[in-house]
């Protein structure tokens, strides 16, 4: 575990240097958060039908979505891509650490470091000023923290699985774009998942993506009651284990055919 943690922490520290990117990201998140909130505000004012979530829960969902947007595995770690393109991956294969563990640690860092730079200031402003309510209870707050850790691990697992496809395609942008669209839709990034039609709910619940956003956010607001937390987290954990298994399998197959070109 020590090497994996060391790689994680080095990449994490490297990424914390990018203050300007974090600031720009923060501004964008505020902007989109306000727009999305206004849309829902208008929707709640004009609609009299009962909605699947109350307005306060939607506000929580939206602001947390903005705060943790960078957690989504929507682009690949630039250093890994560069190492495969340039052949520096040869060095990584000379280390006494498995390629999967190495990439997982890097992906985990490149998913979480930018989030911390954005989430902390965003929450600090959105809670007192922009209608982001506090967690429903102490239990909900604790469960939310566990669910966010699970979300980070799931995100890194998906990112690493996607990274392994680079062993076959080298550039791999296409497959990432497909994934990003699917993920925005089914993680709750675009519209909170409870608003999806009834007939879509079984699919939404079966896919792994809700563990990235929907599950932790609804735990915070109490929309998922404490009694339902465990089954939800268990499903996220299962998916994470399956995706890690798939990634390991692909790496084992891919490295057998990997050709590091040139001298």
């Amino acid at each position: 575990m020590r090497p994996v943690f060391a790689i994680f922490s080095a990449r994490f520290r490297g990424l914390l240097q990018y203050r300007a990117a974090a600031l720009a990201g923060l501004a964008t998140q505020f902007f989109w958060g306000l727009i999305r909130l206004m849309i829902f505000d208008a929707f709640y004012r004009s609609s009299t039908a009962p909605q699947p979530m109350d307005y306060a829960q939607v506000a929580v969902y939206i602001w947390l979505g903005q705060a943790f947007f960078a957690l989504l595995p929507q682009w690949m770690d630039g250093e890994i891509q560069e190492s495969l393109r340039s052949g520096t991956v040869a060095y990584e294969m000379l280390r006494p650490v498995g390629l999967y563990e190495l990439w997982f640690a890097r992906n985990l860092a490149s998913r979480t470091a930018p989030v911390i730079l954005r989430a902390v200031p965003l929450l600090a402003i959105a809670i007192p000023f922009l209608g982001l309510g506090l967690p429903a209870s102490w239990t909900a707050a604790g469960a939310f923290c566990v669910a966010m850790v699970a979300a980070a691990l799931l995100s890194a697992a998906i990112a690493t699985l996607m990274t392994t496809t680079l062993l076959w395609t080298v550039s791999g942008e296409g497959i990432w774009q497909l994934l990003a669209l699917t993920m925005w839709l089914f993680s709750g990034t675009l519209i909170p998942l409870p608003f999806f039609p009834e007939w879509l709910q079984p699919l939404v619940n079966a896919l792994p993506f809700r563990g990235l956003m929907d599950v932790p956010f609804r735990i915070w607001s109490g929309h998922i009651p404490p009694s339902a937390v465990l089954p939800n987290l268990a499903s996220v954990a299962c998916w994470t284990a399956v995706i890690i298994g798939m990634g390991r399998l692909l790496i084992a197959r891919g490295t057998r055919k990997l050709v590091v070109q040139g001298g």
């Binding site: 020590r2 090497p3 060391a6 080095a10 990449r11 520290r13 340039s86 520096t88 650490v97 001298g263």
Partner: peptide, 29 residues
């Protein structure tokens, strides 16, 4: 074994040299 590929670096681009060294210490235990 150790290796140096002259046209590529094994050091971490964004980090001070000593942090790359610390990282390698942890990787090799």
């Amino acid at each position: 074994i150790g290796a140096v590929f002259g046209q590529r670096t094994q050091l971490w681009w964004g980090l001070p040299v000593v942090e790359s060294f610390d990282l390698l210490r942890d990787i090799y235990g």
